[in-house]
Amino acid sequence: MAARAGWHESKTSRIEHGKKRPTESDLTAWAHACGTPELLPELIAELRAVDSAWLDWRRAEKTGLTHLNVAVRELYERTRIYRSYCQDVIPGLLQTAAYTTSTLSAIRDNREVPVDDVTDAVAERMARQHILYEGDHRFVFILEVAALTYRRGGPEVMIGQLGFLLKAMALPSVSLAVIPSHIERAGRWPVENFYIFDDVQANVELVSGFLTITQPREIAMYMQTFARFHEIAVFGRQARGIIEAAIDSLQQ
């Protein structure tokens, strides 16, 4: 292996035993030395994921909430097909300013974010929504029905938020579905909220941090999960009826 790759024998041993982290050029040499160049894209994706995969909230939010939203702006801008699954919250691209303010204020307080920049973070979130109306983007949103009923900011905020969902459903770029509470799940149980950008990246929000997935095999798993949810979700008139029922319950 060392002779084929053109390096010292000890380097091979250190890489094999996890004592040395390979570079992308090391992986290239390794794959070609083994006669398996077709594995190189997957190996490089895994290597890159080591640095970018996990970001804990405490470290991410030490300078506030705005910079996190600014950091993903370019990702949203370049994505052509965006898929979103949420089981307990309305996704950011479909949030009203009031709903976002309530959500980010709670995050600031619960996670003890040292910098109070909620107003700026909300403005960045709202500015991002221009991609719903411009360009050749396509959006597919799947919501658990619970996301429509968990209150964030009181009845008026929720009524306004659900009303905005009804308006968004009419946009040509948007496909919005709801998974009814009575549906037979058959292995399609609720999972963590996740967002897929084309077929190159998936983001997952967890209690302790933020997960960025770039490994093709793992992205495929989230794509398959999304497809299974798509099979049991309702669209169009049925989805609209569920949202309208949620609004009615808030007005009683």
Rank of each mutant, 00 (worst) to 15 (best):
Y133S: 08
R185D: 03
M169T: 00
A33G: 10
H17F: 14
A233F: 06
R152M: 14
W54D: 11
H137T: 00
P172K: 01
L40T: 02
V89S: 12
V70N: 02
A168Y: 02
F141L: 08
K19V: 05
A123W: 05
R80L: 12
G160Y: 07
G163M: 04
V145E: 14
V122L: 11
A71F: 01
I131W: 06
Q224N: 11
V72L: 14
D248Y: 04
H8M: 07
L166V: 01
L55S: 10
E9N: 04
G135L: 08
V140Q: 09
I15C: 10
H137I: 01
I159W: 09
V145Y: 06
V140C: 12
A186R: 00
A186Q: 06
Q252D: 06
I81L: 15
Y99R: 05
F194T: 03
E112T: 08
F139V: 01
F141K: 00
T96D: 15
T66R: 13
L68P: 02
T36G: 02
E244D: 04
E61T: 02
E77K: 08
G153H: 08
A227Y: 09
A60N: 11
R59M: 12
E184A: 10
L39D: 14
I107R: 05
V157P: 07
S52Y: 01
W57D: 09
V122T: 05
H137M: 01
K167M: 06
